[in-house]
Amino acid sequence: MEIPFEPGFSWTVLIDLSLLTLLMLCGLAMVRMRRLFGVAMLSGIYSLLSAAFFVVLDAVDVAFTEAAVGAGVSTVLVLSGMALTSKREQRVSSRRTILPLAIVVIVGAALVYATIDMPAIGDPNSPANAYVGQAYVERSPEDIGVPNIVTGVLASYRGYDTMGETLVVFTAGLACLLLLGSGSIRGGRKVTDPAPSEDEASPVGEAPAPARPLSDGPR
């Protein structure tokens, strides 16, 4: 039962193209930039852009996760990691960048080559829409009765899977908190601890409170 399908032009293709162009510019700027604060801010913008891109592609739940985790949580996590390290990225000698560049170019070329085989967006005969997906779309109103099919699949058809995932993520977060403790995000010293005195040599990596925190002055 081959459904006739003609991939056509729509306005959203132009939005896709412009969003992808902005994504590429943002990524290039992140690679070029040495100031880590700017990179953190640009990664937030990158997440927002890709979230918008996912919405245009109708993957609303993925987009929401991307916006919450990418733009919200990970920006703050990157900033808190940056407080423990340097404000600028060290220069790397250009000889050491050749091999990673070659690997990235080869893998990227392979991925682009793989996209040639992909079905057109919205093709009803593509494997993702034809077999199980179609069954979910047809049967979930009677089986579950939830208007959102994605919610129905996640919470009912794959309920045990979702429960296991939640358990794993919760355990990982709990283990990180137990290992690191709440003091680690402040550089290992609790707020209630007395400040290290002047003659006491501060250990490596724990900088004293910077006089000019994270300022973004001229390069």
């Binding site: 510019l25 801010m41 913008i45 927002l48 852009l49 733009a71």
Partner: peptide
């Protein structure tokens, strides 16, 4: 806004750029 976030030059330019980029989204 992306140009402003890339060029900076100050910290607050970038924070404001991220914020208004979210609004544009």
């Amino acid at each position: 806004v992306l140009v402003r976030a890339i060029k900076g030059p100050t910290l607050y330019d970038r924070v404001l750029a991220v914020n208004s980029f979210g609004t544009k989204t």
